[in-house]
Design a protein around this nucleic acid. Structure first.
Lengths: 180, 180
DNA sequence: AGACAAAATAGACTGAGTCTAAAAACTAAG
DNA sequence: CTTAGTTTTTAGACTCAGTCTATTTTGTCT
């Protein structure tokens, strides 16, 4: 039945590498999608087969983590468990040049906007377990703050520790499982 | 000494009115900035003299409120007082067709993005009084949630009541003044 | 009348994002 | 080995946002 069709010529990883090179060379703003596609040896249209836009290239890992988090919350309904599950599988080596050198690249408010979108998605995922909207904001904010600190302060502990510390600044009932 | 230069031909209010008409007629997406400028009897370039983009037209009142809020926080350092000061001066008549009919206009995620930007600014303003970042997220989220509920549920109470209710779902120490 | 100031405008330009149709590259049969 | 089917890549056109520069308009002041 199969027939696989034309094999892929590129990948998210290849484009990510090309983009990161250019971001470090020229800065984020000065790099167009055409530039990235050229460097990756691929057409501009192909770039859009792999990414929705320029900022998405910088946030691949975040998106992967968000997807996993949403899936975990939907599966278990337990925020704390989902945090442990996702955060403990992420180490500093998973963010090669992303947030680490984000300012070196001249991260514009384009990136800031994209990050806010991710926060919004995070809050939606949190809503799968935390019913009260005001608490959703607080919990999502704590997670985002923990992750941000971890990414910024280079010599801190693990991501899980950072997020746990941040979430623990909230009242415990905010993150309790709805059932039981 | 003065010499005032050429008098203004348009205003935010005029452009806002023209834009709102078109949004209701054609929907938000289908309306270009050219359309708005034409309807207002002004050139496209002039539109950008009054607004930064299409979404900004929908959020004039929010921006005004945010500016006032930021000013109040900077002046007094008291979140609760700033909320009272700003929120009590805003009534339903101040949002003519904005959030009320936002879905009628087919509010895209363009508007959602713009709203997230506003939330980010709100959080920055909150930071003027709340030092702990995790609490900043919670407080800003509560304010946003209260305002959102007020704008959505038509027959509720005042904006101040809605925001106060939302903020009161947080521990009181989150919003206490830093000094004293 | 002439200098000055501020706003409006024309118009060009870059780049993002979308879309369509066609070409390319591979697999599985016949 | 040829053909049909499938998927990706690609070329290219198109709309629109946003920025920028230079020019024109319209007022006030001297």
């Amino acid at each position: 039945m199969a027939t696989m069709g034309r094999p892929r010529v590129s990948s998210q990883a290849v484009l990510e590498e090309a983009a990161t090179e250019l971001f470090l060379e020229q800065g984020y703003q000065a790099t167009s999608i055409d530039d990235i596609a050229s460097r990756a040896g691929v057409s501009r249209a192909t770039f859009f087969n792999y990414f929705g836009g320029k900022a998405d290239v910088l946030l691949v890992e975040i998106d992967r983590a968000l997807d996993a988090f949403g899936q975990a919350v939907r599966a278990t309904g337990d925020i704390a468990a989902a945090i442990v599950s996702v955060a403990s599988s992420i180490t500093r080596s998973d963010i090669p040049l992303l947030a680490q050198q984000a300012d070196t690249m001249g991260a514009t408010d384009d990136v800031t906007k994209a990050l806010l979108e991710r926060f919004s998605r995070l809050k939606d995922h949190v809503a799968g377990s935390v019913t009260e909207p005001v608490w959703q904001w607080a919990v999502a904010g704590a997670i985002a703050e923990g992750a941000s600190r971890w990414a910024t302060d280079r010599d801190g502990g693990s991501l899980l520790e950072a997020i746990t510390d941040a979430v623990n600044q909230l009242p415990p009932e905010f993150t309790q499982k709805p059932d039981q």
